[in-house]
Each structure stands twice: as C-alpha cells, then as structure tokens.
Write a protein that binds this DNA or RNA. Structure first.
Lengths: 208, 208, 208, 208
DNA sequence: TATGAATGAGGATTCATTCAT
DNA sequence: TATGAATGAATCCTCATTCAT
C-alpha cells in the first residue's frame, strides 16, 4: 500500500533537502496534534513550535502563518479521503443499490470516526477562513470527477442537477457526521444514522 | 408586533434595573455589529465595549466572557427564525406539495440573505464552541415541535425516521446556504439552487 | 449643598487626571534617562517601561509609539531652551557687540554642556525621523520671533537675508557643539571655541 | 580618470581572491541601495544580503557587523567627495572672490543633490555611531590639507583660527544642505540659498 | 568560500481582567 | 453601577548569529 510520504523517494535527495523536509514534516505532525487539542483559533504558533520541539523562528522558515501549515495538515486528510472515499462512492453509485450505498456509508463513518479529533479545527477554519473554505470546494470538485461513470447514465440535460444532488447529500453527510460523531450534539445510534441516511439517499438518487 | 425585548415589561422595574438592562442591551446590539464585522474569534471584548460606547470593565459587569454575550446575540437570531421559519415550514409540509415547499424555501433564502453578515461568526462559534453547538440543537428540537401536524400523517413507527429526514434536510439547507450565499464558494443561481433543493425535498419527503 | 451630578464630575475627575498625569510624567522622565543611555534607535519601549517601573502595556495607554514619547521629552528641552537661549540672544544682538555675543555664547555652551547626555538621541532622532526634524524647524521659527527687535534695524529688503544668516549661524553652532562637546570628535579648548565662533559671528553679523 | 576600485590591480590576484572581492563588492553596492532606501537603523543585514543576492551567512564572512559595511559604503562617498570637492574649494579660496566661492558652492550643491538619497543614513549613523563620526573628522582633516595654499597667505598666528573658520563654514553648509535639500524642512530657493551662503562666506573669509 | 537551516533573544503590540474611585 | 487606569500574560514576528555541509 502506498504511504503518503514514501512516494517521494527520499534516498536520492541531497542531505540538506532531506533535513529540511524532516523538520517541515515534524512541524506538520506537531501542528496536527495541536489543532486536535486546541482547535484552530486557539492554536498558537508557539504551541506548534513547542510541540515540534523546534524554535519558533524555525516555524517561520517553513510557513508564513498558521493558515499555511493548517492547509498542509488539511491536505493530508484530504488526500487520504479522496482515495478511500470518493472513488468508492463512485463505484457504489454505479452499482446503484441502497445496499451498496449503505456499505459505502459504513466505510465513510469509519473515516469520520478516525478523523474526529481534527474535525473541530477543520470546521472552525472552514467557517472563519475563506482560503480553507475554497479548498473544501476543491474536494467537492474532485468528487465530481469520480462520479463521471455514474452520471453517464443520465440524459445529458439532467446530469448537472444530478451532480448537484450528490454534492448536496455530501454536504449533508458532512454536517451530520460532525454534529453526531464529533460534537455529539445529535445523539443517535450508528445503525439508525446509517438507516436514515441510506434510505434518504435511496429516494434522492433513485436507487434500488 | 411583538418586540423581543418588550415582552418583559420594563415599565414596572426600578430605575436602576431599567438602566442596567439598557446598558446590557447596548452591549448586545454592539456585539452583533462587531461579530458581523470581525467574526467570532477575531472579535475582542475591547471592540465590543468600544462599539457600545461603554467601558471595558462595564462589559464584565454584564457578561463573564465573549461566549456569553455571543449566546445572547444568537438567541435573538434564533427567536426571530423560529417564528418566521419553522412554523411556515410546518404548514408547507402539511400542504404536501413541491410548490409549497419551494415557496417556503424562497422565504427561507430571504432570511438567509438577511442574516448573511452574522453567519460567519455563528458558524465559527458553532464549530469551536460546544455551548453554541448545543443551542443549535435546541433549534432543531423547536423545529420538531412545529412538525407535529405533518408527522401525524405517518404511521407511528415511521414518524421518528421522517422527523430525522426533515432535520437532515435542514442541516443540508443550512450548509448549502452558508457556502452559497454567505461564503459564495458554491456559485450558483438563486433559481437553480431553489430548483435543486425543492426537487430533492420532493423526492426525499415524497411530496406531490 | 452638594449637587449629585457635579460631585461626580468635579471631585473624581481631578484625582483620576492627577494620577494619570503622574504616570505619564514618570514615563517621560524614564524615557529621557533611557534615551540618554541608549540613544534613540536602541532604546526600546520595554526599556522605558522598566525604567518607569510601569507595565509595558501602560506605556501604550499613554503613547502610541516611541516617537511620541520622544517628542514629549524633546519638548521639555525645547521649552527650557527657548527661554534661556533665544531671548537672550535677541538681547545680545540688539546690544550689537562681539563681547555681548560672546557672553551669550558662553551661556549657550553651558546649556549645551548640561544637555549633552540627551543630545546624541536628539540628533539621531532628528536624522532618522522627519517628525522630529519638523519640530526642530519650529525652534528656528521661534528664534526668528525673538529677533524682531534686532532685525528692525535693517532696511526692509535686507531683513530676510539677515534672518537667514542668524539661522545659519545657529545651525552651525548646533553642529559645532555637538561635535565638540557631545561627541568630542572636534577637540578644542572651550576658550578657543568661544573665540572663533564669536569672531566669526562678529564678521558675519557686522558687530562691533 | 581614477577609478576607485581599479586602483588595486585585480589582474594579478589569484582566482579565489578575485571572487572574494567581487562578492564583497556586491555586498557593498547592495548595502548602499539598502541604506538609501531604509536609512541606517532600519536597514537589516538580511535586507543587505537579499539585495546582494547573497546568503546572510556570506555577509559575515566579509563584515562583522552592519557598521562595518556602512563605513565601507561611506568611504566611497568620502573619496568621491574629496576629489571633486575639497581641492576645488581650495582653489576657489585662493582666487579669493565671492564669485569664485559661489561657483564652488554651486558645484557643491550638485554633489549634495546627487548624494541626497544616502544622506539620511549617513547623518543617522553619524549621530548614533561614534566610529562613523570619527571618519567625518578625517574628512575635515583632508579638507585642511587642501587649504594649505590658501592659509599660507595668513600670518602664522592667524592660520589656525582661519582654518577653524573654514571648517565651521563647512559644518554649516553640511547641515544646511541636509535640512534644505535632503529633509526639505528648510524651504528656500536654490538661488537664495547660494546668495546667502556666498555672502556669509564673503564676510566670514574676507573675500572680495 | 559560500550556503541553507536553525536558533536564541528580544521587540512591538494586544487582550482579558482587576482595582480604586 | 460605571469607569479609567493599570497590569500580566500572550502572541506575532524579526534579527543577528552560528553551524554543519
């Protein structure tokens, strides 16, 4: 399985570059921990530097501001998600049954449960930072790419609306998971959540 | 017309108490302006006090921290919304046609457009502050109350799931409006937005 | 006897105002010490606050930036100088003898010797800060005011040039004292300095 | 014509040494630009290194601190000035007419106008840095050398005082030009300035 | 020799909060 | 009750300087 980091062959890099990346990586990893613990707004650059056991000035050597390192952290999440998440959804929709979608939703929830600690920070940044919000839109666009096969079934004129529908359902799922899994202000059984969402998707997407 | 504040009859209160409430009210009003301008995290107590033309120390006589005054601001929005919003949705659902729901959605969008300036702050606070998130849940619960007549049509065992469905659609609408109207990262015509959402609600709620 | 309103506004304000001024004064006095010790550029707001035994934030309550407190320090010097210095020069010129001017120069040197510690900071600020340089121009203008009686002796058309001459001689004296008394890069006896300047002024101003 | 740099013949130097000097020269040139733009105190070593397109660490291979490179920059100005400036003044004084001096002053102003961008930094450094101030004294001493012929006309016992007089007039001119041409806090026509100074020199130096 | 990375130190500025009035 | 003054604690950011390469 492809590891995110190993894909860039570190062996051939000059020593300097290798060290540089290590430090940068330390900061990114530490930043994630800090964002998970304090959220986005409350996380200070000092916290991140301390967690990375790096001088504050070193932080500025690699990132110009908090938003920048956050986007890097977020990119990792995004990349993981796009592989496990969007492509599988495309396949499930092509299969076209409620059962297939429910299966995918089950997987999606696992991802949500995994990412839970970081999500408050993501939502906070998304709400307060337009740059991050724009990145989120990219994610939706990537999703759109994975749906081509599914959308091909629809007549030309309906495709755009159908695509919007799927996007809206994703937006919905996103918020639902955030409220239910991360913030826990919506209290419901996992199975109930799956049932409701799956059946809603069935009706909305005309699944079997 | 019912004024939110005058519901508590101030005429009979002692002078001191009346002054006290006026000051408090000034702070709340000023806080809203500040939250609209700077968002939640970036708004400082100093900003609010200055906007209210009140000493910073006076702020602390009325509120212990920023979150507290924010909740008060939010309550005003909440109360306005529950009247104009939820009850009309209940009626539209009782009528049971896509046209009725579309009509309501049209109204809902107007509300969104009106509230747009404050919404970034609300979303930010909602993402970072569990207390505020909990208030949001109250709002959904209020919605549930307005749906009794609509839900009564469903057999006992389906009611709960149907209620969840409506709630999910509200969550969806909420996010959609935020992205499309407030942040404008989802770019689409107002009419297209209405069409897509209305038809989605039709399928999801089995409207005519 | 006591009016409720005026008792608040008259009794309380002066006390507050008095305290405020005391603190401000402490900062100004401390700032002067710091400027004398470290010069202008090297003096930090932290240094000043520490010397005034006042919190750094308190500094910002009274001054927006270093330049502002410096100007206040400089004003004190300026005010002292204008009394002891310019008016006496006016009188000496009216007397119109080299001896009178020499006498005044002698006094002027005393002032220079007194102010010596602060002068490096003044010159530094004057060279690097246009605001301060502008204040220096005010000083020259004040000088011009004290020379009216002296200039009245000249025919209308020569007055302006004669005024410029005196100003130039002042500029010269200023720099000379700075180099000789403060920086000590021009090494010469006090008496020699007096002789040379006095005779130069005699020729330049046509004294007896 | 004498070139300041080429006087040290680089042709015979080993390659390494030649490269080394080139780098050093690049830093000096860049430093001048930075000093012109930011003044002395506000110029950072980082700025200079960046302007020279050289690593910050490289700077330290050539200069121990900012003052050191500044002195080098200043030396260039000084050397240019001594050629164009002092010797011509000597000649003018030997001619001994106000017209000759006025002619020289005219040239001097051109030099001032040319050097204007760097002068705030020079004055700032001169005021805050004793080393630089000492260099300024050297300049006066060089001037003294160029005056020998002029001073030879005076009886032995008056020479020293006459030399001081000329130096004082130079100090005066220096400050006047700085205020009038560089800082522009003394506002006057170029011609007026020339007239006043020339006539003052005439009286002070007993010119025809 | 030249450089990229890293750092320690310090400076400016802001804020929430507390007192005396 | 309301307020002006004061403060301690953070935060951001920059800079001069060193070190391994």
């Amino acid at each position: 399985m492809d590891d995110v980091v190993s894909s860039e062959s570190t062996d051939l890099l000059p020593v300097r570059e290798q060290q540089r990346r290590m430090t940068r990586q330390r900061i990114v990893v530490a930043a994630r921990q800090v964002f998970e613990e304090h959220g986005y707004g409350q996380a200070s650059i000092g916290d991140i530097a301390k967690a990375a056991q790096v001088n504050r000035a070193t932080f500025y050597l690699h990132f110009a501001k908090k938003a920048e390192v956050f986007i890097e952290v977020y990119e990792v999440v995004r990349r993981q998600q796009s592989v496990r998440y969007w492509s599988l959804l495309g396949e499930a929709l092509v299969r076209g049954t409620e059962a297939a979608v429910r299966e995918w939703l089950d997987l999606a929830l696992v991802w949500w449960e995994d990412q839970a600690p970081l999500l408050p920070a993501i939502h906070e940044a998304m709400a307060s930072d337009l740059d991050v919000a724009a990145r989120w839109k990219c994610q939706l666009d990537e999703l759109a790419g994975e749906l081509d096969e599914y959308l091909a079934r629809f007549p030309e004129e309906r495709r755009e609306k159908q695509r919007l529908r799927v996007e809206l359902l994703m937006v919905q799922l996103d918020q639902l998971c955030f409220r239910a899994i991360v913030q826990k202000v919506l209290v419901m059984e996992r199975e109930v959540l799956l049932d409701v969402v799956a059946s809603l998707w069935r009706d909305a997407l005309d699944l079997k």
